[in-house]
Design a protein around this nucleic acid. Structure first.
Lengths: 356, 356
DNA sequence: CTGTTAGCGCGTTCAC
DNA sequence: GTGAACGCGCTAACAG
């Protein structure tokens, strides 16, 4: 008779299921097939719930047969945990950002989170996009792009949504940040340049108003003042190869005598060097020494061998994730700023340092 | 007494709201404040629903005051439309991929979709990660990384989930793809090299087994056979700067006499050229002509001026999104393959073409 | 055009 | 340890 009931069951349920094979199976379907209640199924898929080994096995069997997986939406609706974090990245990513991105994905995935991503250029765009994240109940936010409007930042804080700025900081420090010690980087660059004998220094800037640009410049200037009692020439640009190229043209056009240049990023330095060499026959480092920032893969390419200030991206990402995860566990935590040290990677664009 | 009731009211409702100010407001909250039913609120936020201007206004007012936004999880649960699409990207992205990524984000956002992303190296990893997408009821999937296992691909097809391969294809064409005409690219490279006078050709390969590598090689060989009745030297590598560098060393070590080389990607070509020039004093294009593939930003840099086969990434992304969106509208559509034409970008790494 | 009602799939009480 | 019942926030079908 056991047989009989079984037969009837599988006949009744089975056919119905075949017809709607396309629709994803629900916990109810699994429950029916396993001959248990829906809540039993739920418990099997809820870590730390008490289920007997017997039922667990039966449920898992049925679940596998049906290809059942809990619906994250339904689960999120009730647990109020979406297991979603949002990433805001710049539209045109410098190389180190795409590296950071993949590390974020990997790390968050390992921690059991899914990653929503948007790319944004200007602030208003970022704001709007971030707001669309809220619909999906994100539990955390990493901002590696343009800063959010302070209004939106406040809004996040009020709702208890952890936000971490990656590789940049807000002026008021009311929102957490993980970044490199940009000032130290500027200092290291100044030191290296001065020690190599440079006396007429310049700075090729990144995006005006970005904290990274400002801090790198401040560190550079401070050290230069201390060592040489002089300020560097400031050349405006943006964080790009083209920006560096334009800066080189400007420098040559103006006819400034400069023998050492610190660029706010490697991309800038590469464009700067290329233009100096190709269009003006300037030799590096014989005529001008150049130092970059980031240690992007391209900095190590044989055409450049750029001496640069290294940011440890994997470590930065790691710290960002750790901080975010921690804040998501304990909402309402104070905003903190992690500053990672940087180091000078000596290659061949500074005079005398290639001695060997 | 008006005052009194008011006080009581605000004490009852107000405080309650203040206390739980953290919890996101629901449509019920808005309904109460606007003095309408909950479904009225829902309709206001449902495009194409019939609501009178009067109630719409009242609802919007209340919604704005409370900062209400519909919960995408609850909505998705009932509409069965998550408005989520998944992206699978390689762990270490070549420059054109990060460009493609930002275009995807932008385009999908414009179309009203959110973007879930994972990065994956090997197949098993990708499979597992893609499965985790299913929990979130993604409506579409773009795969720009390692191919999915055929088992998983079948599974997607069965569930009626549109999948598009970006810049790569499966051998059996059972799954949609949007890519460049890699064979044509190979042909163009061969033609340009031969026309410039090269007679001893080589090919520096990308990842073995990838469709892009194979197709580019096939087109190259076919054209070479036709024009020169000879096959090129095949040098194994992978899609990276380092791969190109290794290939250069191998070529020089073996002592092959080669005067024209087609590299499976720009990154390969850059590494190849750098090593040839720096380590062996080879002049390009005087001694060896080189052609790449992609037209990555770096190919245009002044140190390289690489002649290359251009992929129009924005257009590829556009087509991918269009196809995906179309398939999401009409599920069960046949798999199709879009091949985009490519063009040769002539710069300065092929002999004679820099005439001017 | 509006309110009422009934679920979407699941986690979580609460008795048993 | 287990099942019944409830509700998360919302859309859809139905009367009025």
């Amino acid at each position: 008779m056991n047989k009989e009931t079984k037969k009837i069951d599988s006949a009744a349920d089975g056919d119905k299921k075949q017809d709607i094979a396309r629709a994803a199976p629900t916990s109810k379907d699994v429950a029916r097939l396993a001959g248990v209640s829906q809540s039993a199924v739920s418990r099997v898929f809820t870590p730390g719930a008490s289920v007997s080994d017997a039922t667990r096995e039966r449920v898992m069997l049925a679940a596998n047969e049906l290809g059942y997986k809990p619906n994250a939406f339904a689960r999120g609706l009730i647990t109020r945990r979406s297991r979603l974090v949002g990433l805001v990245f710049p539209g045109q990513m410098p190389p180190i950002y795409s590296l950071a991105l993949s590390h974020f994905c990997q790390r968050l995935h390992e921690a059991g989170y899914q990653t929503l991503i948007i790319t944004a250029e200007n602030v208003s765009n970022a704001d709007e996009a971030v707001r669309s994240f809220f619909d999906y109940q994100i539990e955390g936010l990493v901002v590696a792009s343009a800063t959010l409007s302070s209004q939106l930042a406040r809004q996040c804080a009020q709702q208890g949504l952890p936000v971490i700025q990656f590789a940049r900081r807000e002026r008021d420090a009311s929102i957490s940040a993980v970044l490199s010690d940009d000032r130290l980087g500027g200092k290291l660059a100044a030191k290296a340049l001065v020690e190599s004998g440079c006396r007429s220094l310049a700075y090729v800037a990144g995006h005006q108003g970005s904290s990274t640009n400002e801090d790198r410049y401040k560190g550079y200037v401070a050290q230069l003042k201390k060592a040489l009692s002089s300020e560097p020439l400031y050349i405006e640009a943006d964080f790009s190869y083209e920006g560096g190229a334009r800066a080189a043209h400007q420098l040559m056009r103006e006819g400034y005598a400069v023998d050492g240049v610190f660029c706010a990023s490697d991309m800038i330095a590469l464009g700067f060097m290329d233009t100096l060499r190709s269009d003006y026959g300037v030799r590096i480092p014989e005529d001008i020494s150049v130092i970059g920032f980031d240690d992007a893969p391209q900095a190590g390419w044989k055409s450049y061998e750029l001496t640069t200030v290294r940011q440890d991206i994997p470590r930065l990402v790691e710290q960002t994730c750790d901080l975010l995860l921690a804040q998501m566990e304990a909402p309402g935590t104070e905003a903190t700023t992690h500053k990672s040290s940087v180091e000078l990677v000596v290659r061949k664009t500074v005079r005398g340092s290639a001695t060997g």
